[in-house]
């Protein structure tokens, strides 16, 4: 049994017993897996079964497939969900661009350039990681209100272009420091400017960390509820998360089918990243302690 290779030198455990232990653990893990996935699968199946059947059944298999919930949900509010998806997509894509550009610029300066006060500013940057957003929330709101930006996507997007997500700077600094210094030293000898070194050497060599930052900033922005809740008032500007919340408020429990259908749809982009970039996500968490 290779699965217990670590403990194979343990004489007190016979092969038969170890096989039994292994079976026990597999059973345990499978039970936990089923319990954990059950609500998700139930929601998926609730969204594709006839409305009347949703509460009469705890099983995962619908008696017949009925996609009318999706149509009901899509048009369930004054504004169609398509608009919310589009708004969410625009905000998320712009946030990704902002984070990747602004954070990599700052990270390059911290990791490679020599300038007066570098260590001081680096410490300050790390310090901003500790500040809860609640402290800056109200003055930021007043600022954006005065600028006339409330009820536009600007308060949600512009800060990303100013590298306020310091976590990504930290992540990139760590990665940039791992790139051999000889490469940019050589380029500097040949008269390369800092800008060209950043653009032609650092960025092309950093695709893994740029991809990790891009994926996490997409997911965080897509899932963000608090920011849009504060800054977006007109339903035409709502993100998917705000749309779902309005759906809960307006329909109460009368339209669970449509609500589940839209909830399921809102998770599709996240699930897509889970399927195709799982390794990057898991490595990102394992190496840097990201919290999601």
């Amino acid at each position: 049994m290779t699965s217990l290779a670590i403990f194979s030198k343990d004489d007190s455990i016979s092969p038969r017993r170890s096989r039994f232990v292994s079976l026990l653990f597999h059973t345990l893990l499978m039970v936990v897996s089923i319990i954990m996935l059950y609500p998700l699968l139930w929601m998926l199946s609730a969204s594709i079964r006839p409305e009347a059947e949703i509460f009469s059944s705890t099983s995962l298999l619908p008696s017949s497939i009925d996609l009318s919930s999706y149509w009901q949900g899509w048009t369930g509010l004054r504004v169609e969900f398509g608009q919310f998806f589009w708004n969410s997509l625009v905000i998320s894509v712009l946030s990704v661009a902002g984070n990747v550009v602004a954070c990599s610029l700052a990270a390059y300066a911290f990791a490679r350039l020599k300038f007066a006060g570098r260590n001081f500013w680096f410490a300050i940057m790390l310090g901003t990681l500790m500040i809860p957003y609640h402290v800056t929330l109200i003055p930021q709101y007043v600022l954006f209100l005065k600028l006339g930006w409330v009820d536009t996507i600007l308060p949600l997007v512009v800060p990303k272009f100013l590298a306020v997500d310091a976590f990504f700077i930290f992540l990139m600094v760590q990665f940039f420091r791992g790139i051999p210094r000889e490469l940019d030293e050589a380029a500097r000898m040949d008269g390369c400017s800092a800008w060209r070194i950043y653009w032609k050497i650092m960025l092309p060599l950093s695709t893994p960390v740029l991809a990790t930052a891009a994926i996490f900033s997409f997911l965080w922005t897509w899932d963000d509820f608090f920011g849009p809740l504060i800054y977006l008032n007109d339903m035409n500007n709502y993100t998917v998360q705000l749309g779902l919340r309005s759906f809960v408020d307006s329909s109460g429990s009368s339209q669970w089918g449509g609500l589940f259908a839209m909830s399921t749809l809102s998770l599709v982009p996240v699930f897509f990243f889970f399927l195709f970039f799982q390794r990057l996500l898991i490595e990102g968490i394992a190496t840097t302690g990201l919290k999601r």
Binding site: M36, L40, M43, L219, L244, S266, L267, V270, R292
Partner: peptide, 10 residues
């Protein structure tokens, strides 16, 4: 998977 999906409104 749940910890990836968990913070969303859905």
């Amino acid at each position: 998977l749940p910890s990836l999906l968990g913070t969303s409104v859905a």
